[in-house]
Amino acid sequence: MEHTVVRPFEDADLAGAAAALTEVHATDGYPVEGVQRPEAWLRSADVMAAWVGELDGAIVGHVAVMRPHGEDAVSMWVRQSGEREDRIAVLARLFVVKAARKHALGESLTQAAMSYGREHGLRLVLDVMTKDTAAMRLYERLGWQEIGRTSHRYGDGQSIDAVCYAAPDA
């Protein structure tokens, strides 16, 4: 029987999480920007809290709650809800390697981030590329509401369609 764990990210997890991220980019094209510096992408100064998912002791997934940094989902939620930006955080950097899927780790990681948001009085928002249909199904199953659509710009003038979501009420 395979054993899964979701726990807070520790500095010692960085190499394993970076390797998992590089693998996910190779199989799924996430993130679309690429991962030239996976450690820096995972440990951005905007990260408020993060968790890893393990399968049989190996890091196979990750999620972070991040301070807003100009995301369309944040401005959409401020406009629609009237909430102040300092009461909003962004669920980001969610990934699980292909070989570890079907263990509900994506759901467990998302639930950890949602619990953090509730405990800290923060409304979580996110955007997800329309190509990532499994992620969209996960968020909708967990009660996230679509709040709008946007175009995610990256690279040299490239863009991809994305859907913005807000987490359910605490």
Rank of each mutant, 00 (worst) to 15 (best):
V97C: 12
G53C: 02
R141F: 05
A170C: 10
A112P: 01
A166Y: 09
E54H: 08
A89E: 04
F9I: 03
Q36D: 15
A135K: 03
R101N: 11
D56V: 01
W77M: 01
L105T: 06
W144R: 11
G155R: 11
P168R: 12
I59Y: 02
G155M: 13
A112C: 02
E39Q: 14
R153C: 13
V24Q: 11
P38Y: 02
R43Y: 00
L126D: 01
V74K: 03
A167Y: 10
V5N: 04
V97D: 06
A49L: 02
L14P: 10
D13S: 09
T27N: 03
L122C: 01
H62V: 03
A58P: 06
A134P: 14
H3T: 13
V6S: 02
A170D: 14
Y139H: 07
Y116E: 01
A162S: 15
F95R: 09
P68M: 09
E146H: 10
R93I: 05
F9D: 01
L142N: 05
V65R: 12
A112D: 00
A170M: 06
A20G: 09
D13F: 07
I59T: 10
K102S: 14
A99G: 12
R118K: 10
G143Y: 06
V5G: 01
E140C: 01
E107W: 02
A58H: 11
V60Q: 11
V52K: 01
L142E: 10
R137A: 15
A99N: 08
R67N: 10
R137T: 14
G29L: 11
G117Q: 07
Y165K: 13
D56H: 03
V24M: 09
G155P: 10
E33W: 03
M66K: 14
R149V: 02
D86E: 14
Y116F: 15
M76F: 15
S81Y: 14
M129P: 00
V163T: 15
R67M: 10
D28G: 04
H25K: 10
V78H: 09
E146S: 15
G53Q: 07
I88H: 12
V60Y: 04
A167G: 15
D156T: 11
G143L: 07
I59A: 06
V60E: 09
A92R: 04
G121T: 05
P38I: 04
L21T: 05
I88F: 08
G82I: 11
G82A: 10
A58K: 12
V96D: 12
Y165D: 08
D169C: 03
G57E: 01
I147P: 02
E54Y: 00
G16T: 07
K131T: 08
H62L: 03
R7L: 06
T4I: 11
H62W: 00
E54G: 05
T130S: 09
E54L: 15
E85W: 04
V90F: 08
L138G: 02
H3A: 08
R118H: 09
A40G: 09
R153N: 06
G143I: 07
